[in-house]
């Protein structure tokens, strides 16, 4: 088996653990919102995006309507467009195969596969996603079946798991260059400002504009 794929699986195991915990909370939330047993599991199987799925359940159960819920989830997943563009040069095959390979892009795997300088390790991306997907679906199923009380995840401090993993990945990225630190600082500031007034997905998309700093400064690979 490809060594990069195995490395990806190893990296993905930690991410899968976080995904699993988050998925349990998603399953429980969807069940309590009246989604039943099958729909949350199918949702995790075909959407496979925590932030979008939470947005979908939250807006629908808040009486926001189907169109608003779909729009919110779509906006949150809007970040996959620039992320897909970023990896496109490192994928293989024709357009259809590349489009299918692009489905492996999820936040943690995408960052883990980043080799610096805008290049990505394709097999590492696949390996990291291959373990997260089943963990996400299994966690959802467990959440739906167990339906733990809403406060339990909070009381156990498990709501820290997901931002903690993003933070660990961010710390690794910050070591790469001063330019990465400046862009991350700007991105965090923009996201923090936008989320005051706008939905999370729009704030995230807006924060990605901070990457335009890459146009103005000389390239500095790690």
């Amino acid at each position: 088996m490809d060594r990069s794929f195995v490395t990806g699986v190893r990296v993905g195991l930690g991410l899968a653990l976080a995904s699993f915990v988050l998925a349990v909370t998603f399953g429980a939330l969807a069940r309590s919102a009246g989604w039943g047993v099958v729909a949350p599991i199918v949702c995790s199987l075909v959407v496979f995006s925590g932030s979008a799925q939470f947005a979908l359940v939250t807006v629908m159960s808040g009486g926001g309507g189907v169109a608003a819920a779909i729009a919110a989830a779509g906006l949150i997943n809007g970040r996959f467009v620039p992320m897909g563009i970023a990896v496109s040069g490192d994928l293989r095959g024709g357009r259809l195969r590349r489009a299918l390979e692009g489905q492996a892009v999820v936040d943690g795997s995408w960052v883990a596969a980043h080799r610096g300088g805008g290049r990505f390790d394709r097999h590492l991306l696949f390996g990291a996603t291959a373990v997260q997907w089943p963990a996400w679906v299994a966690g959802t199923a467990l959440g739906v079946v167990l339906a733990p009380p809403e406060g339990l995840v909070h009381d156990l401090g498990l709501d820290v798991v997901f931002p903690a993993f993003f933070l660990v990945l961010l710390l690794d990225e910050l070591r790469s260059s001063g330019r990465a630190r400046a862009a991350a600082g700007l991105g965090a500031t923009v996201a923090g400002g936008l989320v005051l007034l706008l939905p999370a997905g729009v704030a995230l998309l807006g924060s990605s504009a901070a990457a335009l700093l890459g146009l103005a400064t000389p390239r500095e690979d790690r």
């Binding site: 970040r79 620039p82 992320m83 563009i85 970023a86 936040d107 995408w110 960052v111 980043h114 610096g116 300088g117 805008g118 290049r119 993003f166 933070l167 990945l169 961010l170 990225e173 910050l174 790469s176 330019r179 990465a180 630190r181 862009a183 991350a184 600082g185 700007l186 991105g187 965090a188 923009v190 996201a191 704030a203 995230l204 924060s207 990605s208 901070a210 990457a211 335009l212 700093l213 890459g214 146009l215 400064t217 390239r219 690979d221």
Partner: peptide, 14 residues
């Protein structure tokens, strides 16, 4: 590519 290289830290921070 310079912009793409900064997308990871920016999106993670966001």
């Amino acid at each position: 590519r310079g912009v793409v290289a900064l997308l990871a830290p920016v999106l993670l921070a966001g």
